[in-house]
């Protein structure tokens, strides 16, 4: 007596794979031929002919084997893949350019000197970005200590208190994340710099960055706090804890790594912010450790200044600065990802 063997018709067979591979190869060949035979030329023409032919070929294959619906399905599958490719292509190009152009500007003196005795157009072994790195660190640190309490309090209001302002505050936080960075800069200029301090300083820049950072911190923290099981809060209350003790001793520690992720994402959001710094920090060329007095340099400002100087050395400087900035953001992002994989600790 024979039993019916279960089959898995949805898994691609070797024949399917070979057929797909053949279609791919044939499409490349045809599009090469087309680009060579017709007046079309260039990478763009090649790219588009290839994907048009591939879409058609996949569609035709589907049509011949299963009919019209399958043809549409196969063609759409190709188009959707092209969409994903188009999304990733710019980022690949950006990373490749930053690395290939930036590494030339990475010299030992880059990290030990500032630009007080050099101009962007000088040879690359003169001057560095010490002032910019120290300035960016100071700015980020200041905005961190201002925005994290406000951001986390906002998140706590939305998750723990759930008062009658919850809906409007959610809406406002969303709206705040769309505030253009230049508007944040103008606001600090009009509200603090002109009437009170009357001079460029790092603190002004940090204030503007705080405005841009709060929504990121608030929204990420809210998501994290929502993931903390309700049981933990009930357990805290059942043991006689007040709400304050429950939040401070149970909810926040449980959400710790998630909250750190929120801070890191906030820092990544503002580390490369340029426009408000152009208005507020004055962009000094000397290392300045005092954020409350005198212009302060920062990586984005340095990149901007070098890029606008225009000579070959200056542009290389700009790419080197961008490389440092991108590496910084990549490190922050990887750390955040690593931490958020274990969202609830203990």
């Amino acid at each position: 007596m024979s039993t019916v063997q279960p089959t898995r018709p949805w898994v691609a067979t070797t024949a399917d794979r070979v057929r797909d591979g053949l279609i791919f190869v044939v499409s490349i060949a045809i599009s090469y031929g087309l680009v060579a035979a017709t007046p079309l030329k260039g990478k763009l023409a090649y790219f588009f002919t290839f994907f048009a032919i591939l879409t058609l070929a996949n569609g035709l294959n589907g049509f011949l084997r299963y009919g019209f619906a399958a043809a549409k399905d196969a063609a759409i599958k190709t188009l959707v893949g092209v969409g994903a490719l188009l999304t990733v292509m710019p980022i690949a190009s950006i990373l490749a350019t930053v690395i290939s152009k930036g590494y030339k500007g990475i010299k030992p003196n880059l990290f030990t000197q500032d630009m007080s005795l050099a101009t962007p157009t000088d040879p690359l072994n003169n001057g560095g970005i010490l002032h910019a790195i120290s300035g960016t660190l100071i700015l980020v640190f200041l905005s961190l200590i201002m925005s994290v309490p406000l951001g986390i309090l906002t998140a706590l209001y939305l998750t723990e208190i759930k008062g009658r302002f919850s809906k409007p505050i959610k809406f406002l936080v969303q709206a705040m994340s769309g505030v253009p960075s230049i508007v944040a800069g103008l606001f600090i200029l009009s509200a603090v710099l002109y009437p009170i301090t009357k001079g460029y300083s790092g603190f002004m820049g940090a204030l503007a960055l705080t405005i841009l950072m709060i929504p990121t911190v608030a929204r990420t923290s809210e998501e994290v706090l929502n993931l903390i099981p309700q049981d933990l809060r009930e357990a805290g209350t059942a043991l006689g804890g007040t709400q304050w003790r429950t939040v401070a001793m149970i909810v926040l520690p449980a959400a710790r790594s998630g909250l750190i992720t929120a801070m890191i994402l906030g820092v990544a959001r503002i580390a490369g912010e340029t426009a408000p710094l152009l208005l507020l920090t004055g962009g000094g060329d000397k290392v300045n450790g005092n954020p409350f007095h005198d212009p302060i340099g920062s990586l984005p400002y340095y990149i901007w200044k070098s890029f606008n100087a225009g000579s070959e050395e200056a542009i290389t400087r700009a790419w080197a600065g961008l490389l440092v900035l991108v590496v910084l953001i990549l490190i922050l992002f990887t750390t955040a990802r690593f931490l958020s994989t274990r969202k609830v600790s203990r």
Partner: peptide, 9 residues
């Protein structure tokens, strides 16, 4: 990550 890239880049 691309969404967090700075606009100057």
């Amino acid at each position: 990550m691309m969404a967090a890239f700075p606009s100057i880049l």
